[in-house]
Simulated scan of single mutants.
Amino acid sequence: MAVDETAADRLAEYRGKRAPERTPEPVPPGGAPQPGGGDTFVIQEHHARSLHWDLRLERDGVLVSWAVPKGVPADPRTDHLAVHTEDHPLEYAAFEGEIPEGEYGAGRMTIWDRGTYETEKWSGSEVKVVLHGSRVSGRYVLFRTGGRNWMIHRMDPPADPDAEPLPERLRPMFAEERARLPRDREAYGFEFAWGGRRLLAYVEGGRTRFTDGAGRDAGGPAGLGSRLGRALGSRPAVLDGEVAEVEGRETYLLADLLYLDGRSLLDVPYRRRRELLDGLELNGARWQTSPWYPGEAGAVREAAREQGLPGILAKRLDSPYEPGERSGAWRHLPV
């Protein structure tokens, strides 16, 4: 369907894909749509089979819609794919809910941003708008590249001029082997050493890739990448952890946060990085945020011994993250 089509029933395709008795989505009756204010936009985060964001612009009584797999770009240096989908009813601008399994677009739908917009140009191959939302504001252009495939480009300067790009690859920081606990134990945080496979996870636009302890591309447990990407949603992050067996299941145990929301955390003290990681509440079927215990060396060592773990880690609370280094600020101690 062309973007500028003005047929009487703009929602026929939408209704044809949905059964009102089986989905909580609004499914208005047939006929010409009733015009609204004409300037509403909404971006919905859609946890369907693949996480994506749906950009919808009110036009001629419907919401003209694009699925944007990596979200609306915040920087003009990066264009994102936008797949034109069927027009949606105006009521959809307020919709949040769970589309049942087996139905078209099954999964959770939430409102990520909404507001008003101004039109600078609207044709069947190019749409220029100015968005005024709480999370996204500025001039954008959508341009058609073929069929339903479009691209979306930010025309204004970066939304956050100080934002740093997600690192391409980092090597993890390593601990020195020590036989004894540090004397100033209150200056350290203590963790379990799981004895697993070290992986760094790079999450952006709901997608995840991994590198190993040598900084090489690596794979994680089956299904981990897409699920972890969905858990973080639109928040770009670099995570440090290890894959180990927990209660008979391969699990990614997260222990550090190296980048978040356009900011490198390498120079941020370990204590603060752990607080930020805990705040993300990343605990799922295939991943867990590994616990840490400031100053509690004896209890952690005893618990590790009882669980049959190979050791514990002592990490200075004020230590930065030193990629690729084996640093005395981190100590690996046997149990």
Rank of each mutant, 00 (worst) to 15 (best):
R139V: 01
V141C: 11
V141K: 12
L142W: 05
R144D: 04
R144P: 02
G147L: 07
R148I: 11
N149W: 09
N149V: 13
W150G: 06
I152Q: 04
H153T: 13
M155I: 04
M155D: 13
M155F: 01
P157K: 07
P157Q: 11
P158W: 02
D162Y: 05
A163C: 10
E164M: 13
L166F: 07
L166E: 04
E168G: 14
L170H: 05
R171W: 00
P172E: 03
M173D: 01
F174Q: 12
A175C: 06
E176W: 03
R178H: 14
R178W: 08
R178Y: 06
P182T: 12
R183A: 15
R183Y: 12
A187C: 03
A187D: 12
F190C: 06
F190H: 05
F192W: 09
A193C: 11
W194N: 03
W194H: 12
G195Q: 06
G196N: 07
G196F: 01
R197M: 10
R197K: 13
L199E: 05
L199D: 01
L200G: 00
V203T: 01
E204Y: 06
G205E: 05
G206T: 11
G206D: 02
G206R: 05
R207G: 01
R207Q: 13
T208F: 01
T208W: 00
R209N: 03
T211N: 07
G213T: 11
G213P: 09
A214T: 13
A214W: 12
G215F: 02
G215K: 08
R216S: 11
G220C: 04
P221K: 02
P221F: 03
A222P: 00
G223R: 04
G223E: 07
L224A: 03
S226C: 06
S226L: 13
R227Y: 03
L228K: 06
R230S: 14
A231C: 10
L232G: 03
G233H: 08
G233P: 09
R235V: 15
R235L: 15
R235D: 14
L239K: 00
L239Y: 07
E242Q: 12
A244K: 13
E245P: 00
E245S: 10
